[in-house]
Nucleic acid binder design. Sequence first.
RNA 1: GUCCCCAUCGUCUAGCCUGGUCCAGGACACCACCCUUUCACGGUGAGAACCGGGGUUCGAAUCCCCGUGGGGACGCCA
Length: 464
Amino acid sequence: MSHVRVRFAPSPTGFFHIGSARTALFNWLYARHTGGTFILRIEDTDKERNSEAFLNLIYDSLGWLGLNWDEGPRVGTSGGGDFGPYRQSERSAIYREQVDRLLAAGRAYEKDGAIWFKLLGERYEVFDDHRQKTVTKVRVPPVVIEDRIRGRVERLEDEDFVIVRSDGSPVFHLVNVVDDIAMRVTHIIRGEDHLSNTSKHVHLYEGFGVKPPEFAHIPLILKQSGPGKMSKRDQGALIEEYQRRGYLPEALVNFLCLLGWNPGDDREKMPIAEIIRLFDLPGVNQSNARFDEKKLAHMNMAYLLELPADRFVAEARAGFARQAETPAARAALAAPVEYFREVMLLSQPKIRGIEELPAYTAYFFTEDVAVDPKVRDKVMGKGDPKARLRELLAALPEMNFASDAAIEEALKALATRHGLGFGDYQAVARLAVSGTNAGPSITGLFRVLGRARVQARLERLLAA
RNA sequence: GUCCCCAUCGUCUAGCCUGGUCCAGGACACCACCCUUUCACGGUGAGAACCGGGGUUCGAAUCCCCGUGGGGACGCCA
């Protein structure tokens, strides 16, 4: 097969959402799988709804997800190319030229100040119930689309349609086809919502005397609950939200791949190189998929667990920085970097997401430890916790804080000396140092907090 | 309303093309138990699906038809 050229063609008219990201991802994967070219084209012909902020969001989100483009607007290390400009707002002259060609060839005409594409065939009038008006139809054979995912699809396109608005601006169908021809796009991979537009596009290709590219219409992502496809307003729909919550882009990408595609076996968590190796159009499903935030969260946790220490600490710090206005985050960021690092690494195997970190680790960075009253009542109401505290305090000066193993040994020795178990000290010590009953191992807690903090907190609880 | 697409556990899906190896496998979620020094992770197990009806066939989750359900499109939006 000749060199594959695919494109992702978003319009900067709204937030960048999960559905767009997956369309971009499938195009990117196909390009990377085939050694082809991934083009980013900005479809900003809707002057009313365009915004520079949304445009930057597209660049940011693609960049964050790691979906670098080979051709397109130049941003960071992505972009460039010989078929630009890649923003449709800068290609007006090209569209005007192509419309003139259609006009000259008799395949377009002017009506009501707009320019219409002319279908070839006998015309007749019919009343359209849905639109409540009489429309002119044309007798044409149905368009046959050999879709790489759907198979053979037939659709009748029997009305002329507008390609240039009366204000002179070109319409989506026109610019889409003109640019795909000009940019030598070989495969159009897009959402199934475009399947019904494809008949218009095929007519346009024929109008230009060009063989249409391959089409591949991917299934849609449905909202988590309730009817309909996912939209920008739905819970969990926005890419920037995951970015802000500290999700790992590789986890989101892995999850997104599995929405409508699978490697053909049971594997789910896969390195991107493996996904690229296995991804192909025939492996894409035909049915729509419902978005599941919980499964995404699980995938994210699995990636978090395996993250190398340096990267985890960096992600954690970024997460705190995003909440820098809260006292807890400010205190953590002000702490010595080595201490911050130790706290984060202690928490890494325990948390489900970066966003949990500030609350999960708050007591490491303040002496004003919040105490969970229910936990306090439960722990303090069982056995003789104050006696245990006194015994801990007595043993503390001699305790070796060098390692978790040393601390564990010391605590076990203490318990044995008093004819008790590890657990008899664990609960009350944890309450004293953290104010709660959940968290990293008590030995890790002692080691990272250090003798002085532990002593102060044990004493405080004893005095309470 | 018209046209187009789709249909396996609650959800994502394997199996379907090339019918028997499927009283349907995995994952998320839920529940139970185990592990354990709390909380997680992990482990084991349970419950949970071939939308309905016709056909074809010795045999259908797999092929065909009709229903039904879901989704999409029907703009001088993209």
